[in-house]
Design a protein around this nucleic acid. Structure first.
Length: 425
DNA sequence: TCTGGGGTCCTAGGACCC
DNA sequence: TCTGGGGTCCTAGGACCC
């Protein structure tokens, strides 16, 4: 029986979320920006047609935007996450096996399902459009890598009507199609390797499919052997239907304005550490080291540059915000140098294991651990109920010196009372 | 003036051990 | 004075993804 994997991908997802609540933006050029309104991270079709690239710095795009009346939004992650949950939960009813791959993509196992898979894809698409309001495209193929490409074809060729099933094509038809797609479109071939492949004569997806896998492995890495197999219809990547625990948890942010003060960096470090340890507790894990780093803006070449990071081991694995904040401040003070204009602080939790695999030591203080646990539970409980950041450590501070720019953010239509749309009728 | 954030996997090279 | 080879573990950095 032929393997059939579907990839359902939302069309310019963040833009589609914004349009959901402002339908007058249908057909108009719209973008959504990254944190600090720094880069363009989601573009409507109209904007793509104008030639605006993904991740383009917004300040360089303003003239073009003005000329064409592009509507811009700061990112509203609370909204996108909520809409994503609705799409994913609806999709889960279409297959016994689903892998939620990212905020806007899901793989679904269709192997063995009777009837036309393309028609089934259309049904998914119409259901999501009708129930949630988000447009999606569906690609179907015998491997994940091919399903990604089928999705790409569905998105870019009108004649497929948003659903493309490679399994329904014969070998010649499929190869002819793959010959028209640039090798850089393949999942796993990025902007560095794409030119290198072109140099050795591998320009199209078909070229890569027919390339000698062993030789590619030697010149690039083992992942290429896998990619070539997947392109030949041999599934090497299984569907991951249980989300696994993170091996590292990162929280980092660029500042709205550069700063050279240790105070500011300490405040940011505590805020990000707090957030990261919250995520650690959410997945019921403990960590035994924290990496903290700071850096100046690499884009400001006229400034003196500095970047440094340090790994701070903890006395014992923990999920207590206070222990990590202490480590973060300790590390920060070691790497901090005065006189630089810092742009970013980041923290990363490492050596993560499930909390129930905590090693016992001679010096375990069970009473202290219980106190720590009930304090952290209370903290999480209150912040969950009253809103994130209601209760925090004093060091995080109350001034917002380094607050991000997000003047263009839409309302939290679905996750806050104040964000609800009210009908005046 | 303004250039994102979070994550994984792979490789090379160094330290160390026998 | 000469100075091996193989294995493991760790880390840093690169590449990629969304």
């Amino acid at each position: 029986m032929k393997r059939a994997i579907a990839l359902v991908d939302c069309n310019n997802f963040y833009v589609s979320c914004e349009r959901l609540f402002q339908p007058k933006l249908e057909g108009k050029p719209v973008v959504v920006l990254s944190n600090n309104d720094g880069c363009v991270v989601s573009r409507s079709q109209e904007v793509k047609d104008l030639g605006m690239k993904m991740a383009a710095p917004w300040y360089q795009m303003k003239a073009l935007a003005k000329r064409h009346g592009i509507v811009a939004f700061s990112s509203n992650y609370a909204l996108y996450a909520d809409i994503s949950n609705r799409v994913m939960s609806l999709l889960s009813s279409f297959s016994p096996q689903q892998e939620v791959y990212s905020i806007d993509e899901s793989f679904l196992e269709l192997t063995g399902m009777p009837g036309s898979h393309a028609e089934y894809g259309q049904l998914m698409r119409h259901t999501i459009r009708q129930c949630v309001g988000i447009p999606v495209c569906v690609g179907i193929a015998p491997s994940k890598t091919l399903a990604k490409l089928a999705n790409h074809v569905a998105k870019n060729n009108l004649q497929y009507n948003s659903v493309c099933d490679f399994n329904s094509m014969d070998e010649h038809e499929l190869d002819a199609l793959l010959a028209t797609i640039e090798v850089g479109e393949v999942w796993g071939v990025g902007r560095r390797t794409s030119p290198k492949l072109q140099e050795i004569g591998i320009r199209s997806v078909l070229d890569l499919k027919r390339a000698p896998a062993k030789r590619l492995r030697a010149s690039f890495s083992v992942v290429f052997e896998r990619i070539v197999s997947e392109l030949n219809g041999v599934a090497c990547l299984e569907l991951d239907d249980v989300p696994h625990d993170k091996q590292q948890i990162i929280c980092s942010r660029s500042f709205g304005t550069l700063t050279s003060g240790l105070d500011d960096l300490e405040q940011a470090a505590i805020a990000y550490t707090t957030r990261a340890v919250e995520k650690l507790r959410q997945q019921k894990s403990i960590a035994s080291a924290l990496h903290i780093y700071i850096r100046t803006s690499p884009h400001r070449e006229q400034d003196r540059q500095y970047q440094q990071g340090i790994l701070v081991p903890l006395d014992e694995p923990s999920d207590d915000t206070r222990a990590f904040c202490k480590a973060a401040l300790h590390g920060l003070r070691q790497i901090y140098r005065p006189g630089y204009a810092y742009q970013k602080v980041g923290v990363m939790l490492a050596d993560i294991v499930p909390a129930n695999e905590r090693p016992r030591t001679l010096f375990d203080d069970d009473a202290a651990r219980e106190r720590s646990q009930s304090l952290m539970n209370a903290l999480d409980h209150i912040n969950r109920r009253m809103g994130s950041g209601t209760l925090k450590l004093l060091g995080e501070g109350t001034k917002q010196n380094l607050a991000m720019r997000n003047d263009l953010r839409s309302r939290r239509y679905t996750t806050e009372w104040d964000g609800l749309l009210v009908c005046n009728c």
